[in-house]
């Protein structure tokens, strides 16, 4: 044994003058195990009672699950969600940057937008866009005080699909703006100062330094918004578009199989939600990799960092 070392390293040899090393026994957690078993039992009996219940009309569910009308409704709901969320994120980023501007006019415009679009029901906004032709029969753009104007019939430009995209997208932009703003504000101002001192322009420091670090804050509520939009988009049935829910409603209004068709709709909503949740957790892991405590190489990169 090394005499100079004040606390000798534990050795495997049995030494009479040393007490034996302790063997650690983890806590048993019987309570937790019992609770888990009880929960599993309740869940199982619940599922069995639903599956065995003829009133749910499971054969009808199977019959309509891949019905053409349901499929086209699912398709509309899916792409409408994607398109409106893309518009919402882009618009929300612009609005968030405007709202944080030191120029009062610019931040006032952004805040007024938020006030209006968050303050009125999205259903009303949809109907408004749908009926735009009644207010402005022609839409024109051009350069003021010149003859360079293009004019089109509002009824041609604002189809129901266009009204749905505008109504949902513009409304979503207002909500996304607050989410993105909270993310941008969560990044320490020293980061932007360091970027500036290295000769980066504002745009570059926003894109390369601030936004990537704001992502962990921005993503979870954005996932919420996307899943919410999946269902909010069913409002478009008021402007004569057949989304997933409306397609189910159309079918059961004829055959009166209300519950089975609503179950069909829910199965597809849950499927879409599962896919979105999986995408969200991938994105989260991508942006969270600097928070990991190891030097291990990262296997699940979402994007190649060239």
């Amino acid at each position: 044994m090394d005499v100079s070392s004040p606390s000798p390293a534990p050795s495997n040899e049995n030494q009479t003058d040393q007490p034996p090393l302790l063997t650690y026994v983890p806590i048993r957690g019987y309570g937790r195990k019992a609770a888990a078993i009880v929960l599993a039992a309740i869940l199982l009996s619940f599922l069995v009672s639903i599956a065995g219940n003829d009133n749910f009309g499971w054969p009808v569910v199977g019959q309509y699950l891949f019905d053409d009308r349901i499929m086209s409704g699912l398709f509309l709901t899916s792409w409408l969600t994607v398109v409106t969320m893309v518009i919402g994120v882009v618009l929300g980023t612009i609005l968030a940057i405007m709202a944080m501007s030191t120029n009062n006019v610019i931040s006032f415009v952004a805040n007024t937008y938020l006030w209006f679009f968050r303050g009125t029901p999205v259903l009303v906004q949809l109907i408004f866009w749908y009926n735009l032709a009644a207010l402005f029969p022609d839409l024109s753009i051009g350069i003021p005080f010149t003859s360079l104007w293009v004019s089109i019939d509002t009824n041609v430009a604002i189809t129901p699909v266009m009204a749905a995209i505008l109504g949902l997208g513009l409304n979503e932009g207002a909500y996304m703006s607050e989410i993105i703003r909270s993310g941008l504000m969560s990044v320490d101002s020293g980061q932007r100062q360091a970027a500036k001192s290295l000769g980066m322009t504002n745009g570059k420091s926003l894109w390369r330094i601030v936004i990537p670090q704001a992502m962990p804050i921005i993503i979870p509520p954005t996932g919420n918004q996307t899943i919410g939009m999946l269902k909010t988009s069913s409002l478009v049935s008021v402007i004569a578009l057949s989304d997933l829910l409306y397609s189910a409603q159309t079918i059961y209004s004829r055959n009166f199989q209300t519950i089975p068709l609503l179950i069909v709709a829910c199965i597809w909503y849950l499927t879409a939600t599962s896919i979105l949740t999986a995408i969200q957790s991938r994105i989260e892991r991508h942006y969270g990799r600097s928070l990991l405590q190891t030097d291990a190489p990262v296997r699940w990169r979402l994007f190649r960092s060239s």
Partner: peptide, 19 residues
């Protein structure tokens, strides 16, 4: 920005890019 590129600065709180 171009002028700043050749004038480096080191901060009290390091301000390394965390990501």
């Amino acid at each position: 920005a171009r002028q700043r590129a050749r004038i480096a600065m080191v901060f009290q709180n390091f301000n390394l890019f965390g990501h």
